[in-house]
Design a binder for these strands. Structure first.
Lengths: 130, 130
DNA sequence: ATCGTTGCAAACTCTTTGCAGGATT
DNA sequence: AATCCTGCAAAGAGTTTGCAACGAT
């Protein structure tokens, strides 16, 4: 027997603060970065809540995951067009790159079929260079 | 006061089996994959030993890390020329791609400096397609 | 006989989950 | 008032480490 209606999400200051944090940052954030950003506004917010809400936002498709090699995932506001990322090796921050400048057709072993790709650029960001 | 001599590494069947596993696989292996491959030869080998020896091999620069977005690292025999990797989304295996076909100069935000890049292709490998 | 190496179990980090109290509608 | 959400603490996954026994030299 099915439930009559689905869960009604509620607005909380924790969620609001997290939404603001993502808008303000304008770059992919790790759970820890979210926690830091949000702590100023919502004292005592727990990391568990950050994770839970990140996952909720992903179910809502308001956030998407940005997985980086060898590091905890970052999350960014969903719906942007295909793009890749830049990571500063000095401060560790992840930045969004415009568009996808990758056009070459990669040579694959015989019988392999490509369906997607990921591309990361590493270097130093403007803040860390100045 | 400095030690008179450095540690003398010893050959063990565990290390030998691990070296063979990497040579035979001819693709980057995760610690779990190494464990599986080696178990047939060395019954009772522990995951801790696999990790310890992987780290030792990396200090010897015989292995290098291959970090993949959102997954445990793989390791491959060091000293190969610049190349990238393909991951099969069906079986999860990682394969080496020949050379680097990436030539485009990526447009970075003002003031950013690029020093390196990573590139991953995802798809289905020949084994999983047949 | 040394002393590097191993297996086991405990410790650690990152992330998820159970639960009881607190907050939103 | 109903029930969603939160904080805390415990539980899981992946990796590292302490320790006593083992084994290569």
């Amino acid at each position: 027997m099915a439930k009559t209606h689905t869960a009604q999400p509620r607005n909380t200051k924790q969620k609001d603060a997290m939404r603001s944090a993502f808008h303000l940052a304008n770059r992919p954030l790790s759970p820890e970065e979210v926690l830091e950003a949000v702590r100023e506004e919502v004292f005592g917010i727990s990391l568990a809540t950050v994770y839970r809400n990140i996952n909720a936002f992903m179910e809502d498709e308001w956030l998407t995951t940005v997985e980086i090699p060898g590091q905890p995932a970052r999350y960014e506001v969903a719906g942007k067009e295909h793009h890749h990322h830049f990571q500063c090796t000095a401060c560790g921050k992840l930045y969004e790159l415009e568009g996808c400048t990758f056009h070459g057709k990669t040579k694959l072993p015989r019988g392999f079929l490509a369906t997607s790709h990921e591309y990361f650029v590493y270097g130093v960001c403007a803040d860390c260079r100045s």
